[in-house]
Write a protein that binds this DNA or RNA. Sequence first.
DNA 1: GGCATCCAACCTAACGTTCGTTAGGCGCGC
DNA 2: GCGCGCCTAACGAACGTTAGGTTGGATGCC
Lengths: 197, 197
Amino acid sequence: MLELPTRRRAIENVASGLFRERGYAATSIRDIARALDVQGSSLYAHVTSKEDVLWTIVERSAEAFEQAAARSLAGLPASAGAAESIAAFVRAHVAVIASDPELANVFVHEWRHLTGERRRAILARRDAYEARLRDIVGRGMTDGELLPTDPAIAATFILTALNGLATWYRADGRLPPDRIADHYVGFAVRALTEDHR
Amino acid sequence: MLELPTRRRAIENVASGLFRERGYAATSIRDIARALDVQGSSLYAHVTSKEDVLWTIVERSAEAFEQAAARSLAGLPASAGAAESIAAFVRAHVAVIASDPELANVFVHEWRHLTGERRRAILARRDAYEARLRDIVGRGMTDGELLPTDPAIAATFILTALNGLATWYRADGRLPPDRIADHYVGFAVRALTEDHR
DNA sequence: GGCATCCAACCTAACGTTCGTTAGGCGCGC
DNA sequence: GCGCGCCTAACGAACGTTAGGTTGGATGCC
């Protein structure tokens, strides 16, 4: 189960860092190689193409988001309401980003440089992930626990705010991930619930 | 005052469309030219470099956001509270994006491909724009009108959610811009205000 | 009207560079 | 001695950009 650090993995790590910093299209194979103190052509002993590197990173990140959300929501008591579910979802999402912001950023932004079937597949997974939050929100609204607004717009509002983290989060930032998650949970839940003033 | 449609402007329009769709680095001069049914080299009669096109687009978009925010906030009564100010800011931001999502998206995402002084300058303007919202939020919190959370985190949460619009907004979408703005204003204001349940 | 002039807009051709990628070989540790 | 990790060299294609020439319609003047 434990993943040992192969050369391939090292390539993916520096690649995701550069992809986050400059974007996939503006990062060349030789840029990645230079960061590893190696010639560009040497990378092809470990990867089959540049897009293949992107694909692997996107896959790993998608897996991380999906599993974190699934685990987090499965751990909820059966009696959990929409607010609790949203809180769990937000916390899981923030934790995934904070644990590897470079990886997460590629899932959030750089997936669109995939082509053909891979692009189609990752788009479907992104949709399914978003649908997870949208369904929680939709159910909360029909139950009357959440303000009756538009579930799709509401879910997108929250998810795009969460994804912003993948851009600006820095491990050496002012607030630790848990504090950020606390705030974000508060914003997300209050955004969708009535205030009785 | 009226801007007549020059050739240069036509180039910027198709360029911002392609930049939004594929990103600046993945869009070649020849791509832009092809969309205008022209040879790549022909563009250089109208622009001095590819980055120059990006720069002009970013500038125009920055102007649009700044002016919309300034106008919108200046139009508020002196008695306006933080909630009203946030509502005005959100509405202005949404309107700018909806009126030209391609242009807005370049300001939101593609500015980082600028280099040197231009990059520095646009970063400062982005910071100033964000500070505008952060100040409103900060004042609202010290006044007690808003929940005392972290003003920087709160402003970033809202602004990144707003900027998400620049990615997903489509003119032929399900909801008109005003309806989207209504929802977004609600989410943003409730996120920062107490609910007394 | 006829003619020279102008100018914006476009063309073809080519430049030097960088791109992703392939081929074939070399050295070092198990 | 086998194989992993790297090398040099090179490929064709695409990149941003420059140079110099052609077009066609408007303008000014006789």
